[in-house]
Design a protein around this nucleic acid. Structure first.
Lengths: 183, 183
DNA sequence: TTATTACTTGAGCGATCGCTCAAAAACCTT
DNA sequence: AAGGTTTTTGAGCGATCGCTCAAGTAATAA
């Protein structure tokens, strides 16, 4: 998963995978059907963890809105050391995979949609808890939040100044907070 | 350029390039030094156009802030037909190119920095024109704006509902407008 | 026209790609 | 230990990769 995450699908060769998995080609093709199927498994693993993390983060917090805000803030502290890549594997895959591989693309799209739905659930909880106006549209807010996350993780990929990243995450998190007092 | 834009660097083969350029391998390697150098030329062409477009958009408009807002709004109408890809070639390249190709990476980073600087100039003009508070930080606003653009273009890559995209762009554009009355 | 230079061609190089499969090794069961 | 089953192995397949270069073609100069 880490290998695919960092190098992308087509830039990861079977030689790389053999070394990372400590398996010989025959075993790899016995366990998975193909390189594409292996990649799909890696995608599922990655997305599953992300979805679990997001679910827990929202469910455990007393305030859903604060949890969402904290998540954005945490992206501002993304270190290049703690994780294989600061960029999102789903986004990297979305940009790499073309229409000529519809199956893979649909897997990516499905996971992105699941994440968006989780975010929408969080916003819906915030609305139900009275943290947001009753007429706020969770789906719309979720799409906006996800757009922030996309942008933030890409900025993290290029930004070298930690303070600038921190400020940026703060600015975006404030947008979420400001929804509270918005009409 | 279009080929690299759509397929990415490593997924574009010389056979593809031969057909697109209507040149045989020898001529390609006489005109450019290598596949990497050709890609660099494509990057420069793409970024140059984007930078020119952005410069003109800001310079021609009576209000810099309105121009920046309009730019975000226009991203909401990105059609999958009019352009080769709705995603930004610079971002795609940033996510694809690893540290093991520092030259290419630096080219991408330099172009992204140039775009950010152009946006900062736009915000600086807005401050000078009194459209924004005097203590607004153009560099910070530019980084935020660029983050919006990154996120929007990625959403455009997956979103199928034009209305949702339009609403999303509207939401983000409104964030820029709201800066006017912010303290 | 002929000699010289500049450019184009495409066969094909060595390397690597994703992948297969017969043989070997490891693991059971009796 | 012996026989049967499952798993692992790695040599190597055909295809394609980025790239080279001797030979051929076109353009220019004398």
């Amino acid at each position: 998963m880490t290998l695919f995450w960092v190098k992308g699908y087509s830039a990861t060769s079977l030689k790389d995978l053999e070394q990372a998995l400590q398996m010989r080609p025959g075993s790899i093709y016995a366990a998975f059907r193909s390189k594409e199927a292996l990649f799909r498994a890696a995608l599922d693993l990655y997305a599953g963890r992300m979805e679990a993390e997001l679910t827990a983060m929202i469910a455990d917090a007393p305030s859903a809105l604060t949890a969402l805000r904290s998540y954005l803030l945490s992206l501002g502290g993304l270190d290049h050391c703690e994780k294989p890549s600061t960029a999102c594997m789903l986004v990297k895959s979305l940009l790499e995979i073309q229409m000529d591989r519809p199956e893979l693309r649909n897997v990516v799209l499905a996971h992105l949609e699941t994440v968006r739905r989780l975010l929408a659930q969080g916003f819906a909880r915030a609305v139900a808890a009275g943290e947001l106006p009753q007429d706020a549209d969770p789906a719309r807010l979720a799409r906006r939040m996800q757009t922030y996350v996309f942008g933030l993780k890409i900025q993290a990929q290029r930004e070298t100044d930690p303070e600038a990243m921190q400020r940026l995450a703060q600015d975006l998190a404030d947008e979420i907070s400001d929804l509270r007092r918005a009409a």
